[in-house]
């Protein structure tokens, strides 16, 4: 099983490579990928440097080009495909069928992966991407249970990669526009969810309030730890009850499922977090490398070691982690 790690900059890429990632994924410095954050991602020179660093050490580089171009911006995506082909990335991760069509016509050499933003949750959809674009691998949305993942793999014409750790989308990726409803910018159109440009923090008599696009997302009592106002993780009122009506601010950690994931035939585990620091990338890569190695060697005896879980807990969003949809009761 491969370990695929995130890099939002060159130092992160290097620590991912140094700590045992099999592949590192990255994106360009614009809205062509789903981590379009200020100061993040790679320009052409840094990408070339990153690819060389990784290839010299036997690590592959995947480029995410996983947002949906509109006609007015189409050229940027087309240029990005051309750039990926010229640079010799090991895979291009795309979602839009127009981009995939362009990429598979542009170069037979380009190895195409279907992004999680492509929203493929079933093997009939995967067959579509295989037939038309010769996609070799697909990243599944974080909505399927373990048995559903197994069922997809049993019938899939392509390799399956899943998210193992990091921030958790509770919605099907590529089909959630809550962010643009409040701000005008969504992962599909802009490459960011709940963008920082639309966040407000204000002290009020009721406590510290966080708003997104003017909508009150969370209210914190004095002394309470305030988190980033990701829309789906706010506290809202439904029939008089105030609670995390959509999702708690937890993050995904499937480390203890590793033997089952391997058994199911999952080809690669992906770590979320291109927007996170090199320290995060280093710690998470190191722990997951150790865990995958231990599990490959002796799956029967595998257990998620306490020190691994503690290390991962330190870098998780919020203080809780969840098995997400892989664990059926979560659904």
């Amino acid at each position: 099983m491969e370990l695929v790690c995130p890099a939002g900059n060159l130092p992160s890429l290097k620590v991912a490579v140094d700590n045992g990632a099999d592949a590192v994924y990255l994106g360009l410095r614009d809205d062509t990928n789903a981590r379009h954050f200020a100061g993040l991602n790679f320009g052409p020179a840094k990408i070339a440097e990153g690819i060389k660093y990784a290839h010299d050490r036997g690590t592959r580089i995947f480029m995410a080009l996983n947002t949906y171009p509109q006609p007015s911006g189409w050229e940027r995506w087309q240029n990005a495909v051309d750039q990926a082909a010229d640079l010799g990335v090991d895979a291009l991760i795309a979602a839009d069928i127009g981009v995939l069509d362009y990429a598979c016509n542009k170069s037979q050499e380009l190895n195409l992966h279907l992004s999680v933003q492509g929203s493929a949750t079933n093997y009939e959809a995967l067959s579509y991407y295989k037939d038309h674009f010769n996609v070799r691998r697909a990243v599944l949305p974080r909505v399927l249970s373990m048995s559903q993942v197994q069922h997809v793999i049993d019938h899939s014409p392509v390799e399956i990669e899943i998210f193992g750790f990091g921030s958790l989308c509770v919605m099907v990726e590529g089909r959630c526009i809550l962010s643009s409803y409040a701000t005008g910018r969504s992962p599909n159109t802009y490459g960011a969810c709940s963008p920082a440009s639309h966040v407000e923090w204000s002290e009020t008599p009721e406590g510290l309030e966080t708003r997104l696009g003017g909508v009150l997302i969370e209210r914190y009592a004095k002394g309470e730890n305030a988190g980033y106002p990701t829309l789906c993780k706010g506290s809202f009122q439904v029939e008089g009850n105030t609670y995390h009506a959509i999702e708690e601010p937890t993050s995904l950690n499937t480390l203890e499922l590793l033997p089952q994931l391997m058994q199911a035939g999952v080809k690669a585990v992906k770590i979320e977090g291109r927007q996170r620091s090199p320290v995060y990338v280093e710690q998470v890569t190191r722990v997951w490398r150790a865990a995958i190695d231990a599990c490959s060697e002796n799956p029967e005896e595998f257990h998620a070691q306490a020190d691994w879980m503690a290390e991962l807990g330190k870098v998780s969003e919020g203080t809780q982690t969840t098995l997400g949809a892989y664990h059926r009761p979560w659904q």
Binding site: V143, V172, C232, Q331
Partner: peptide
């Protein structure tokens, strides 16, 4: 606006989706 594996109506009643 969005689709999920989770049922938010069931969640509001503290019921599992199943």
């Amino acid at each position: 606006l969005a689709y999920s594996a989770r049922c938010f109506t069931a969640r509001s009643h503290n019921l599992p989706k199943d």
